[in-house]
Design a protein around this nucleic acid. Sequence first.
DNA 1: TCAATCCGTATC
DNA 2: ATACGGATTGAC
Length: 704
Amino acid sequence: MPAAVLPVARVLVDVSLAHLDRPYDYLIAESDSAATQPGVRVRVRFAGRLVNGYVLGRLTESEHPGRLGFIERVVSAEPVLTAEVAELAKVVAERYAGSVADVLRLAVPPRHAKTEAETPPTETDAILGMTPPTSASASGAALTGVSGLAVAVGGNAGVAAGAVAAGKSPTGWLCYQAGPAFLTAIRERRPARAVWQALPGEDWPARLADAAAEASGAGVGALLIVPDARDLVRLDAALTAALGPGRHVALSADLGPAERYRRFLAVSRGSVRIVAGTRAAVFAPVAELGLVAVFDDGDDLLAEPRAPYPHAREVLMLRSAARSCALLVGGFARTAEAQLLVESGWARTISAQRTAVRAAAPRIEAAGDDYSTGSDSAAAKARLSPAAFAAARAALQAGAPVLIQVPRRGYVPVVACVRCRKRAQCRHCHGPLALSGPGGTLLGCRWCGQPEAHFRCAACGFDQLRAVSVGAGRTAEELGRAFPGVPVINSSGPKVRSAVPAEPALVIATPGGEPVASGGFGAALLLDGYAMLGRPDLRAGEETLRRWMAAAALVRPASAGGRVVVGADASLPVVQALIRWDPVGHASAELAGRRELGFPPAAAMASIEGDEPIVLAALDRLDLPPDGEVLGPVALEDTDSGGQQSQNRAPAQDDDEVQLRALVRVPQAGRKALSAALRAVAAGRSARKEGGGLRIRVDPSDLF
DNA sequence: TCAATCCGTATC
DNA sequence: ATACGGATTGAC
């Protein structure tokens, strides 16, 4: 028997087929009426199969002309999908040419029944069931509309200037022009949007915590996203310091199902309104969201590797626009995407005055790859320039640790044939071979892990290897010899450290694995700059500066003796930007260059990958918007050139099919049309039940 | 003219 | 996948 009131439920089914990607209506049994609230999980029969779904809302009648089926079962009365997140999932799916179901799989953690039962539901849960929700309440909670956008971060240098005039040197957000104004905007619940350039040495978790505390004080929620688990640990601690215990939660992928769901429930039930997390947390159902923030948005960990591959920064932007809440995109460096936000007038810059930057930055010099002087010294063997060696020695003598950034982990992560110089490949899966283990004595495959006992070059049959690049492991060994008696800490690969004490040590780290040193590092040596700069990647320059700045920001100011030596030529624009600590100038030039070449974010781009006939058919059916163009398709090679992009690609591929990749691009104005056209292609494929893999990615993070 | 079967399409 | 509707076919 159908429910007496509002007997129809609009249900989002967990089916990721593109042509079925819309809500469906079901009848609610009277006995299920109380539990069938917006946001609850249900089981429904869809095309004969039982599938999971979410209730979006309730209606008096359906527009569907045919007969409706009943909801099979209400999985639980817990409303896990808020109206805001449901709407966000739709917008994200549209933007990334994916299905809402795919986005929801990223957004809502799997249910953990035991955890759900632990904490009794709040009294708002309709145990009494006397008041079925109106359809207005299904959507009413979320969208406050997009009016009143672009409330500017007013020039509020007054506060900072006041602090300076009073003789105190400014601290925290007072160091930044427009910093205090941004906090004011949060307090007044205005949707201010800002791109923030953190000062070198900045305790950025504390600044994010300040902003979250401001939101908390204003009675609104905050959502803070960082790239990795180590960043999250720091942010978590800063939030505890700023807000006290129990006022926030940290959401990360490594929590385990029970704890993940427990914290999710704390957020969705509204008992916690301040949320910090890694990329999956961008969808957290924070109540009364007033601030979204992301730090270090250039880190590729913020790009979701599962379909439809949304980027955390973009999701937060969509979210801030939908809810009209404040947005903060921060980092030491600045991405071209963030620069576009500023240049388009959508966001304002928060940065410090030149004098403050100079006072905070270490002394930075370029040493090229000048290892010439005294070429058999221990320093030269460790690939250190005289300047680098001197900077390290001075810092150690001053009692401070020295940070050494090495682009690659492992011992000799890339080896090649001595005779023909071809990269050494695994005989099983053609993956790259590398030397690992103590002293680099183990030769094996980086993809499948198979050891290689008797190398023979696949091209010329020769059996001798040469090192192509040197990893953190070997660098650590060599540096240990160059500075006898100084402890060497290897913070790379699985051994990353989050902090080191303020005492002399050589800290070898891969980018992103740098520990913080209390009081700052005395010096940082940025090695093998060309290995990072030379990568065939659109973002090589931007990424190199981001990594360098992240390391240099951990060094004491020049006034306290802090020095950075970068192993690349001073004439390179990236090196110049580092030396002058000018992330904005670099981002501006980078964006100008991308405009000229028609690359993202100046243009909207998407990649289409798959077996040859599938890609060709997809391109044929693609209804490209005006001014759109197709680049390629070209054959995908499974080389290891990308270094650390690995996981996406299957190690062993059926090599009888040629994999193709095409890029399509349109001017920014055609972005929505491009997404819609790509969705139409996917919908056509799934309607015709065409099998085989076709991967469509909008704004792919790796372009070349 | 009607039932059995086939095929395409929607999936509530 | 399965269910349904319309078209097609074959027997009366």
